[in-house]
Every structure is written in structure tokens, then in C-alpha cells.
Simulated assay, not measured.
Amino acid sequence: MPKFAANLTMLFNEVPFLERFALAAKAGFKGVEYLFPYDFDKEALRAALDLHGLRQVLHNLPAGNWAGGERGIAILPDRVDEFRRGVASAIDYATALGCKQVNCLSGIAPVGASDEVLRSTFVANLKLAATELGKHGIKLLIEPINRFDIPGFYLNTPDQAASIIAEVGSDNLFIQYDLYHQQRTEGELIGTFKKHQAKITHVQLADNPGRNEPGTGEIAYGFVFKALDALGYDGWIGCEYKPRTTTEEGLGWLAEVGR
């Protein structure tokens, strides 16, 4: 049975970050995820997890200048050294936080760049990261993201992710399957999940349109949750949505599914 994790980058964001752990636990979440831990002291993050009985489910590799609009550097041939330093930082934090999965954002393809060069850079970086993370028992994930929200993002579909995983050839590289991005890109939420289930180790959600909480848009989340249960998915589902009002006011969907 899937378990739900609060995405602290997007939920409870009306309060300072380290205060969000308490609110997630109070709301009934057993796990948390967020974009990046690197701006915070890892001992303070570990203490917040322990104090509130929460598991660190996922965070991302460093992804370049996020505030400046970058969304990953793994495809960029002139940033390989920075990527490798980021792998070391991710291992440092994930080990301290007990986090067993780290996501790699591919990045936005520069205009006019050679797809062959971008893909070969991505594959080489993933080979290195999968190997280094695997030494510490940490899974490496890659996430397809729709091009409406992030124009030019390199990795867009699970089929593309599966092709890259096959080329990398590592048994420590998996897919992060975001239902919102899949709905915007292709639909076929459950059929696509079934096709790639063997490589999916983390799921995220938001409704569409608006990227708000389940029940506010077109995705039949009651059906989706039952289907994931029936397919035997027992991993985490990260709640990476923008509350339509406040997080607390929008949590009715969680009570309805009995979590």
C-alpha cells in the first residue's frame, strides 16, 4: 500500500522551513521530501526528522543555480566537474538523513545544443552517480518533467527515461514517476505506470490543471490510488502540489483515502 510523504518545498510554506516538519507530522504524514537540503545544517535536519518521527524519503542532487532558473546540470558538458561535486554533497546529506533515494534533474537543453552531446553527457554522469550512490545504498532516480512547466527540459517521458536507463546499464538507476507531469505530457497514467513499474521506485502527485491538491482537477485520484494498490506499489507517493488555499484546508483528500 502506498505511503504519502509531504513535500516541504511546497506544503506548509507559510512557515519557516524547519517548522514544517512538525506540521507534516501533525497532519499525519510519516515521511517528507523536498527539493534540496544543502542550505541547511544536516544535523538540524536530522534532529527535525527524529523529533517528529519522520523519514526522509527523497531529495534532489544539486541542480545548479535554481534561483537563476537552472533546473539541473546533468546534461551540460561544461558542468561535469560541478555535477561530480554535487554527487559527493548528495551522498553526504543523504547518509546523514537516512535518505535512500536521490533524484537527478537532467536540466534544460541549451538552444542549438547537439542532442548527441547532451545525451552522452547525461549518460556518463548517471553512470558515475549511480555507482557512487550505490556504494552507500542510495538509489539514483531520474524524473521526466513536462515542457509546459519547464520549457526545454531535456527528459520528458518515461519511455525516454527507460531508454537512457538501458544505455547507462546500471542496476541502481530508476524512474521517479510524477503523475502530474505524466498527465500534462501524455496521460495514460496507469498504463504507463504498468509499462515501467519494474523501474519506478517513487511516485509524486498533483492535480491538473493548476498543480493543486487531489480533487481540484481532472485526475481521478480515487481510481489512481486503488490501481496503484492493486498493482502492488508499496513505495512512497510524494505530495508535490501547490495548496489552492492553505495546506491544512486542502488536506481533506488525505483523510478520504484513509491515510
Results as ranks from 00 to 15, higher is better:
111 V>N: 13
167 E>D: 15
117 V>W: 01
230 A>P: 00
21 F>S: 07
17 F>T: 08
81 D>N: 02
66 W>V: 00
117 V>Q: 09
117 V>D: 05
5 A>N: 07
140 L>R: 02
255 A>W: 13
107 G>M: 12
14 E>Y: 07
179 L>W: 02
142 I>N: 06
66 W>P: 01
63 A>V: 05
241 Y>G: 03
105 L>M: 15
40 F>R: 01
220 A>W: 14
13 N>E: 04
109 A>G: 12
171 D>Q: 12
54 L>H: 11
189 L>Y: 00
84 R>C: 02
152 G>E: 10
195 K>H: 02
127 K>M: 04
167 E>P: 09
113 A>F: 13
36 F>G: 01
235 G>Y: 06
222 G>Y: 14
208 N>Q: 13
45 L>F: 08
195 K>R: 08
149 D>C: 03
126 L>P: 02
171 D>E: 11
254 L>F: 15
10 M>C: 07
88 A>M: 02
38 Y>F: 13
82 E>I: 04
88 A>F: 00
147 R>I: 08
243 P>I: 09
179 L>Y: 12
164 I>T: 08
154 Y>T: 10
159 D>Y: 12
65 N>C: 07
150 I>V: 15
209 P>F: 05
77 P>I: 07
228 L>M: 15
206 A>G: 10
258 G>P: 03
107 G>I: 12
253 W>Y: 14
135 K>R: 12
44 A>H: 05
109 A>T: 03
45 L>H: 03
74 A>G: 09
227 A>S: 15
226 K>I: 07
105 L>I: 06
246 T>I: 01
243 P>G: 11
44 A>I: 00
43 E>T: 12
218 E>T: 13
252 G>A: 11
190 I>A: 07
26 K>Y: 14
194 K>T: 15
138 I>C: 09
147 R>F: 10
24 A>M: 08
218 E>Y: 07
120 S>Y: 12
60 N>S: 11
14 E>G: 12
194 K>Y: 03
22 A>T: 01
253 W>Q: 04
226 K>T: 14
141 L>Y: 11
246 T>W: 01
213 E>C: 07
136 H>M: 04
200 I>K: 10
65 N>L: 09
216 T>C: 03
137 G>H: 06
212 N>D: 12
239 C>V: 06
151 P>F: 00
86 G>W: 00
162 A>T: 04
100 K>V: 10
237 I>Y: 14
41 D>M: 04
221 Y>I: 11
165 I>M: 12
